Simulated assay, not measured.
Amino acid sequence: MRPKTRTSLVGVLTCGALIAAAVITQHDGDTGSPSRLARGPYVALGDSYTAGPGISQDSGDPAGCDRSDRNYPALVAERLDLKTADFHDMSCSGAVITDLTAPQSTDDGTNPAQLSALSGRTRLVTLGIGGNDIDFSPMIKRCVGAGALYRALGSGKYVPDDSPCEKQYVSHGTDEVRRKIDAAGEHLADTLGEIGRRAPQARVYVVGYPEILPSRGDDCLRAMSLAPGDVAFLHEKERQLNVMLRERAEAGGAEYVDTYTSSRGHGACAAEDTRWIEPLVPTASAAPVHPNARGERGMADAVLKALES
């Protein structure tokens, strides 16, 4: 997703982000169980939920991608004991699906088309993207503003079904966010086909976004300044995004990595010592409403679990 502007980082939810990876299995006798994981080459693609802005030292060029050396692709590569030459992290904050096939300008340099790192040698691909395509970060900011205004003009308190922001996106039977999710799905389908053409030997895993907000907003007022009904609305939009990512992955011959289930209860409104996603004002090293180091480790664990299955 996008912590900065479109030309630099990615936004919030975006997003993150979707992951792809590959497993080459070798069987021991008649056990049918894999004896080793693929050792690469591994290419990581994605937005800021993949890049991990603000977590630790930036890795690679351009600096405007805010790519952490402790993001989940780096942790996966480390666990697989990959050589530097066999690991290519192309993720970039602010990326949308079209940035996978064209250069992406940032506030500090230009990231090459992410798919340019793929080749016939590639064996693992992880892909985490889609949040910026539905403008999830601007949507959260808009909902925070709507909630603050609603509270200031009203009684100073919310009631459980208050959702001043949702009404700006859903009206007269038209769901603007749902429309963007569907459009992103079409673009993702084309992109998965292109990945298959460029890296025909690779196993591809699309990774969904971890929980950003809970299904109920009772505990989010202090951390996120969102009306309870809008917390539920944003939660549902992330769920719809992840469903689209799963369906498109499966239809495109890729596999889906579920980071949401293991992250439930660890979103931006959770306690400081357990959350994977930082709130609007981070208390750990991370961009606002983006994964912290704990979140990137959790996402790496989900990818590795998928590779071992």
Score class of each variant (00 low, 15 high):
residue 5 T to R: 15
residue 5 T to Y: 00
residue 5 T to Q: 15
residue 7 T to D: 15
residue 11 G to Q: 13
residue 11 G to V: 03
residue 13 L to Y: 14
residue 14 T to Q: 13
residue 17 A to V: 01
residue 17 A to S: 09
residue 19 I to K: 11
residue 20 A to R: 02
residue 20 A to C: 12
residue 22 A to Y: 07
residue 23 V to Y: 03
residue 24 I to K: 15
residue 24 I to H: 07
residue 34 P to D: 12
residue 41 P to F: 03
residue 42 Y to T: 08
residue 43 V to P: 09
residue 44 A to F: 11
residue 47 D to K: 01
residue 47 D to E: 04
residue 47 D to Q: 04
residue 52 G to E: 02
residue 70 R to E: 10
residue 74 A to R: 11
residue 74 A to C: 01
residue 77 A to Q: 10
residue 78 E to V: 00
residue 79 R to K: 06
residue 79 R to Y: 04
residue 81 D to R: 13
residue 82 L to W: 09
residue 84 T to P: 13
residue 86 D to K: 14
residue 88 H to Y: 15
residue 90 M to G: 00
residue 91 S to M: 07
residue 93 S to F: 06
residue 94 G to Y: 08
residue 97 I to Q: 11
residue 97 I to A: 10
residue 98 T to R: 14
residue 98 T to K: 04
residue 98 T to G: 00
residue 103 P to G: 12
residue 109 G to E: 12
residue 111 N to V: 02
residue 112 P to L: 02
residue 113 A to T: 04
residue 114 Q to T: 05
residue 114 Q to H: 03
residue 114 Q to G: 00
residue 116 S to I: 01
residue 118 L to W: 01
residue 119 S to V: 04
residue 123 R to G: 03
residue 124 L to K: 01
residue 126 T to P: 05
residue 128 G to K: 14
residue 132 N to M: 08
residue 134 I to P: 07
residue 136 F to D: 14
residue 140 I to E: 15
residue 146 A to R: 09
residue 147 G to R: 14
residue 149 L to H: 14
residue 149 L to P: 01
residue 151 R to S: 15
residue 153 L to H: 14
residue 153 L to P: 04
residue 154 G to C: 07
residue 154 G to E: 10
residue 156 G to Q: 06
residue 157 K to G: 04
residue 157 K to D: 10
residue 158 Y to E: 10
residue 159 V to D: 12
residue 161 D to S: 12
residue 163 S to C: 10
residue 165 C to S: 12
residue 168 Q to A: 14
residue 168 Q to V: 00
residue 173 G to K: 07
residue 174 T to F: 13
residue 175 D to L: 11
residue 177 V to I: 15
residue 180 K to D: 11
residue 182 D to A: 12
residue 184 A to F: 07
residue 185 G to S: 07
residue 186 E to W: 01
residue 190 D to I: 00
residue 193 G to E: 14
residue 201 Q to C: 00
residue 202 A to N: 01
residue 203 R to V: 08
residue 206 V to E: 04
residue 209 Y to N: 11
residue 209 Y to E: 13
residue 212 I to S: 08
residue 217 G to M: 13
residue 223 A to S: 12
residue 224 M to H: 08
residue 225 S to W: 04
residue 231 V to H: 06
residue 232 A to I: 11
residue 234 L to I: 14
residue 239 R to N: 03
residue 239 R to G: 06
residue 250 E to A: 05
residue 252 G to N: 10
residue 253 G to M: 06
residue 255 E to T: 12
residue 255 E to D: 13
residue 256 Y to S: 08
residue 266 H to C: 01
residue 271 A to M: 04
residue 272 E to S: 00
residue 273 D to Y: 06
residue 273 D to E: 08
residue 274 T to V: 08
residue 277 I to R: 05
residue 278 E to N: 12
residue 280 L to N: 09
residue 281 V to P: 05
residue 283 T to V: 14
residue 285 S to W: 00
residue 288 P to E: 05
residue 292 N to V: 06
residue 301 D to F: 02
residue 301 D to K: 08
residue 308 E to F: 10
